[in-house]
């Protein structure tokens, strides 16, 4: 039995696998929000895969956008649209190179800005002042604390 190349390509185009992972950037406190909560930031993102979805091409996941936009609240919608379908046909059938893509929308809010008038101490409260009082002799580095 002979399988024609075009039919084989259709079968290959069926083998697209992918995964979209939502996690926080390292060191960031990010909270998920509900579908109803109003948001101020909305970014559309498209991530690409090769070998019919087996390998991420650009490794662009939502954490990249979360870190770049400094979001502290976020929700994500993964969505496939008609343009995505056309791209799938283009790169898996017409030009069979196994390129797949996944679109997603990242919505969220940034941290509230510090209120005007709030003073931010230059040093932590328990840090001793580094400037010598007037009239005191010049001092070198602080001696090590006693054991």
């Amino acid at each position: 039995m002979t399988i024609r190349p075009a039919w084989a390509l259709v079968l290959l185009s069926c083998t697209g696998c992918f995964s979209v992972d939502l996690y926080a950037p390292h060191g960031a406190n990010v909270y998920l929000i509900s579908a109803e909560k109003p948001v101020k930031v909305r970014r559309d993102l498209r991530t690409w895969y090769v070998v019919w979805g087996l390998v991420r091409l650009d490794n662009t996941m939502p954490d990249t956008v979360i870190a770049r936009e400094q979001l502290t609240e976020v929700r994500v919608i993964t969505v496939d649209t008609v343009p995505d379908a056309l791209l799938g046909i283009l790169y898996n059938v017409l030009i069979p190179i196994g390129l797949a893509n996944q679109a997603m929308t990242i919505e969220g809010n940034r941290a509230a800005p510090t209120p005007v008038g709030t003073t931010i101490p230059a040093n932590p409260p328990d840090t001793p002042p580094t400037r010598s009082p007037p009239g005191s002799p010049a001092t070198g580095p602080a001696p090590p604390p006693p054991d």
């Binding site: 996690y23 406190n29 579908a35 993964t78 496939d80 649209t81």
Partner: peptide, 19 residues
């Protein structure tokens, strides 16, 4: 083979869930 499908990553209203 080009089926669509939407998935929403969200939390219940009023919940505080850390990522």
């Amino acid at each position: 083979t080009t089926g669509c499908g939407t998935v929403h990553f969200d939390v219940p209203e009023g919940a505080r869930v850390k990522l």
